[in-house]
Nucleic acid binder design. Structure first.
Length: 273
DNA sequence: ATGCCGCCAGTTTGGCGA
């Protein structure tokens, strides 16, 4: 299908920190922002228990992929949803200390929406530098790179959005001195983002709304949101054709306010097509 | 006031998030 309609397409990403806990806010936000495509992360529920009815009532088709707990991703689209692909090429799993077998986790789902190939990704956290989860994070990002390389076609706009759990630069955290020896800011993690750019993707940086910063995540603890102690870790990577036609990109920090928010804000880009 | 952690599975407390 070519583009479903001419004009602007709005594509967004949001780590909702439990889609079931966030149903009222998700429905509210879809009505306010009216994205054509929304990538979700951290569903914390299963594919079957995703709130399909509530979202479909607003005109969205859903490709959900989750097994519960600390994973789960989805693509919502009101401009068509085709060729759904769950998981990455040669995707590694994670082996907890108390488990015998490594288990693959639902952290990536792709679909074609109105002629744009869209992936929603939830990159592993990493926990601590040197931890097995950190090595898993780096290996998972290699699989993401390989999947992107396989999927890129000259004639197809492509974008991957989600919670990358990496701050691209020192400016993307409130104070780099507080991150000495921590995950999310290390050179090996940032090199994996560079590998995506080397494939031809570009970071589409959003504008902030209240402050010069464009953070997308603020820890629930310590009043971090109110002090603007945040991080930009939810990223939008797009092919040059798309990135060149972005008319606006922003962090909807209003969605981080109020009762029972996610700890992440939605990130939005408008693309002229 | 945006207003000081929340979610899930289940040892209804503890692990995880980042």
């Amino acid at each position: 299908m070519p583009c479903a309609r001419l004009g602007t397409v709005r594509i967004a990403t949001w780590n909702v920190n439990s889609v079931l806990a966030r149903v009222p806010r998700l429905v509210e936000w879809l009505g306010i922002a009216e994205p054509d495509v929304l990538c979700l992360q951290e569903l914390k529920t299963t594919t079957e228990l995703f709130p399909h009815a509530e979202v479909e009532a607003l005109g969205y088709e859903v490709a959900a992929y989750g097994t519960g707990r600390w994973n789960g991703v989805a693509v919502l689209s009101r401009v068509g949803l085709e060729d759904v692909r769950r998981g990455l090429l040669n995707e590694p799993g994670f082996q907890p200390d108390d488990a015998m077998l490594e288990a693959q986790e639902p952290r990536a789902v792709g679909a074609t929406c109105g002629g744009v190939r869209v992936w929603s990704v939830y990159v592993p956290n990493g926990r601590e530098v040197g931890h097995a989860h950190y090595e898993y994070k780096l290996a998972w990002l290699d699989a993401l790179r390989d999947t992107v390389a396989e999927e890129l076609r000259p004639d197809r706009p492509f974008t991957v959005l989600g919670d990358f759990n990496i701050a691209p630069t020192d400016e993307d955290v409130w104070d780099i001195k507080d991150f000495d020896g921590m995950t999310h800011v290390t050179e090996p993690e940032r090199a994996k983002l560079a590998a995506l750019r080397e494939l031809g993707l570009r970071d589409v940086p959003p504008r902030g709304m209240k402050y010069p910063t464009n953070y997308t995540y603020w820890d629930y603890r310590g009043g971090n949101f109110h002090k603007n102690l945040g991080m930009r870790i939810d990223l939008m990577y797009a092919t040059a054709e798309l990135a060149d036609n972005v008319t606006d990109a922003y962090v909807d920090r209003d969605a981080r306010k109020g009762k029972l928010p996610s700890d992440h804000a939605p990130v939005v880009m408008d693309i002229n097509r």
